[in-house]
Design a protein around this nucleic acid. Structure first.
Lengths: 222, 222
DNA sequence: GACATAATTTTGATTAGTCAAAGTAGATAT
DNA sequence: ATATCTACTTTGACTAATCAAAATTATGTC
C-alpha cells in the first residue's frame, strides 16, 4: 500500500512528465512541485526506487516505472473525477476545487470512485477541460496548444487552463475564458507581449502572452 | 491542525463516552477500539493532553476537553453525513459504507461538507438511524434501547444498529431489521438466549440475545 | 496481609517523512 | 584549465506513530 505522500510524489512526477514531454524529472523539479527541500526529494527518490515506483538516476532524475505510472494515472483519474463532482454536483467554485480534490483523492476507494464515475455519467473531461484518464489508465490528450501560439484572425475553442493559480482562475472565469468557449484572435503583438481576443458576443479581452501560454485551445472551424 | 490519527482517537473516545455514558474512557478501551497496543494508547493520551484535546488521569483514563469534544463531534458529523451520501446518492451497500466513510471523513473540508449537507437536504439521521450532529455539535439521542430489553408482546420501531460487523449488517438488511421498520416481540426466552420477532406482514425472525443487544428500538404505539 | 492477576506505564527500538546545513559534482565562464 | 556557481547528495537531527517486552500498580482472593 502506498502512503498518500507516495501517491502525491508519483502524481506530480507524472504531471511534470506529461508537461515537459521528457521521461526523466529532475530532483529540482520534484522538490519544487512538492514544496520540499532538495534533500528530502533525494531521500524520497531512493525509497520510491526501493519500492519499485520509479527508476532513480543520481544527479539526473527519476522516471516512473510501469507500476508507478499506473498508480500515478489512477491518482490523476481520482483527482479529475473529484473535481468534476465538486463542480457539477456540489456547485463549488472553480477556483477552490483543486485543493479539495487534492485531499479527497487519497481517501476515496476504487469502489466509491467507480460509483461516482457512474453517477456523474462517466465524464471524459474535468471542469478545466483536462482529460480524465480511463480506468485502465489511458489518457487522450487532444492536440490543443497554448493560445499564445495561434495567429491573428483565427477562431479557437478553449480546451483547458494549465495554471492552478487562484487569481488567474478567477480572472479566467470572469472573462469567460473557460473550456468550451469560442474566441476570435483579434490581434497578436509580440513586441508588446500582448494579444486581444473577442468573444462571439463581441466583448474583447486583453491578455498578456505570459498568461496566454497557460490557456490551451483548439482551432475552431465555424 | 490535528492529524487524522488524532481525529480518530478523539472520535472513538467520544463514541465510547456516549455509549458508556461515563465521562472517562480507560486506556484499555481506547487501545481496544483503536486496535493499538496499550503502550501506544498511553503514549497517545499524553500527547493528546499536551495538545489540549483531552484530560489524562494516569491509571484511570481520558476525558475529552471542550476543544476535543468539539472536534470529535465534527468528526462524527462528517462520518454520518458521508455514510448518508454513500448510500443515498451513490447507492453503496449498507455493509460497506462504514469503512469508506472512515477514510473520507479526514479528507473532507468544512466547505465541502456544508455543500454536501445541503445537497442531501440536511438529513438528521444516517442510514443506520443514528443522529447526525448539527454543525454546532449538538446531537439528539432518541431514548431508544436494545431490543433485548423489551418484553413479550410489545411493538417496537427499529431506530439503529449499533454494530458495524459486516455479516451482521448483511443479515439485518436481509431480514428487514433496519431503521424505521416495525416489529412485534413474540417471545423472549432468556434461558435459551433467544427472542422471536414478527414483522407487520407476519414473517418471523429468530434472534440471539447477543445480537438483539446490538439493535436499538423505540416502543411503538400502534 | 501476601499473592496472583489484570491493567497500565515505561523503555527501547523502528519506520516514514521532513529540515538545515555541509559536502560534492558538473557545467559555465573567463 | 581553473574558479565559480548551481544542482544535487549526504549527514545528523527531529517528530509522529507505532510495537514488543519489561516494569509497575491496582484489585481481588484466600
Amino acid at each position: 500500500m502506498a502512503s498518500s505522500t507516495v501517491e502525491n510524489y508519483l502524481k506530480e512526477i507524472l504531471v511534470v512528465t506529461l508537461e515537459t514531454e521528457s521521461s526523466k524529472v529532475s530532483m529540482g523539479q520534484v522538490s519544487k512541485v512538492l514544496r520540499v527541500t532538495p534533500g528530502t526529494a533525494t531521500a524520497m527518490a531512493k525509497s520510491l526506487e526501493r519500492d519499485g515506483w520509479v527508476s532513480y538516476y543520481p544527479r539526473v532524475g527519476v522516471s516512473l516505472t510501469s507500476k508507478g505510472k499506473k498508480l500515478a494515472m489512477s491518482m490523476l483519474r481520482r483527482h479529475r473525477l473529484l473535481e468534476t463532482f465538486l463542480v457539477e454536483t456540489l456547485g463549488l467554485d472553480w477556483s477552490e476545487i483543486h485543493a479539495e480534490a487534492e485531499e479527497l483523492e487519497h481517501a476515496i476507494s476504487e469502489k466509491v470512485l467507480e460509483k461516482l464515475d457512474e453517477f456523474l455519467g462517466r465524464p471524459r473531461f474535468d471542469p478545466h477541460g483536462d482529460p480524465i484518464p480511463s480506468k485502465s489508465g489511458v489518457i487522450k490528450r487532444p492536440a490543443s496548444k497554448p493560445l499564445s501560439e495561434f495567429s491573428e484572425n483565427m477562431s479557437v475553442r478553449i480546451e483547458s487552463i494549465v495554471d492552478q493559480d487562484k487569481k488567474f482562475l478567477k480572472f479566467a472565469r470572469k472573462t469567460k475564458l473557460v473550456p468550451g468557449q469560442i474566441f476570435k484572435i483579434l490581434r497578436v503583438e509580440e513586441c508588446a507581449d500582448a494579444m486581444t481576443l473577442k468573444t462571439t458576443k463581441g466583448q474583447s479581452i486583453n491578455l498578456g502572452l505570459r498568461s496566454a501560454e497557460k490557456v490551451l485551445a483548439l482551432p475552431f472551424e465555424s
